[in-house]
Design a protein around this nucleic acid. Structure first.
Lengths: 146, 146
DNA sequence: TGTTTCCCTACTATTATACTCGACTTTATT
DNA sequence: AATAAAGTCGAGTATAATAGTAGGGAAACA
């Protein structure tokens, strides 16, 4: 049960944008360098993100990306749903809790997986980009004290 | 982020064994029929389960499997850890919370995934085979009332 | 001895993952 | 107007995981 690089890189990219939200448009090149992610691969991930409306884009010289939403309004759950397609641990339940399996009536274990999906969804929808940025600042502060 | 058939089938097999815990050894053939799972595929899954100590086996005529532990002592988390290898959503954290990634110090998102792992672990470790059997009985009772 | 069962190894088709590569378009600056 | 720096788009590819199938061997019991 893994979160793929797609979702993880997307999150890191968006956290990076959240940190630089007052610096205008940020070039993918810079994010790729800072985050140590292949720029070409990030391009593909950004394509997926662009299908939602969390990013603003400028092309050409001095172009780049910036968040179109406030970091405290954008949850990790949202980002993972966009990039991974779903938060559901099984194909037989989707994000709308609709069940598509003929065995569902007799399936004794279905409620286990529905519950898992709910637990994961609640957790990831409870964390915003801002939370991550704040936590990072906090940990820098701790380092300084030590 | 999916749970594979391996883990799901293993769980269904063990719930089946929990339901028949007083019927002696249960042949894989019967479980495969009841659960609508390829017997040959189940054989492979049982091989994995056999490496832990939750099953008792008898070969030959009238042979089969039975639970070696009480259904209320065996959690879903345990079963998924055995079959999927880990409950961690990332390779950079394992089940013992050890971190194996050079970027971990600067990784702003690590705590998100650690938290996810904890949430998933707590949830799945909180459900036993007996819970699933009970829930099933309960839903049959409801059907009868209607 | 024969049948039933588990046990073990190998093979395979399909899909997902994690990228790379090349060509094209847009646009601010000179 | 030219150029260089961006994003955009489509294709290709190597590796691994998934979800099985297939076949024979060994143990147990009647």
């Amino acid at each position: 049960m893994r979160i793929s690089t797609k979702g993880r890189y997307a999150l890191r990219m968006l956290v990076d944008l959240a940190e630089h939200k007052n610096d205008g448009f940020i070039a993918l090149k810079d994010i790729a360098n800072r985050q140590n992610i292949s720029k070409k691969y990030l391009e593909q991930i950004v394509t997926v993100l662009n299908k939602s409306h969390i990013l603003q884009t400028n092309r050409g010289f001095q172009g780049g990306y910036k968040l179109a939403v406030s970091p405290d309004k954008c949850t990790v759950g949202e980002i993972i749903r966009i990039t991974e397609g779903t938060l559901s641990p099984l194909a037989c339940i989707d994000d709308e809790n609709e069940i598509n399996c003929e065995r569902s009536d007799e399936c004794a274990t279905l409620f286990v997986w529905q519950g898992l999906k709910d637990v994961v969804t609640n957790y990831l929808d409870g964390i915003t980009l801002q939370d991550i940025v704040d936590k990072k600042q906090e940990s820098y502060a701790n380092d300084y004290v030590i």
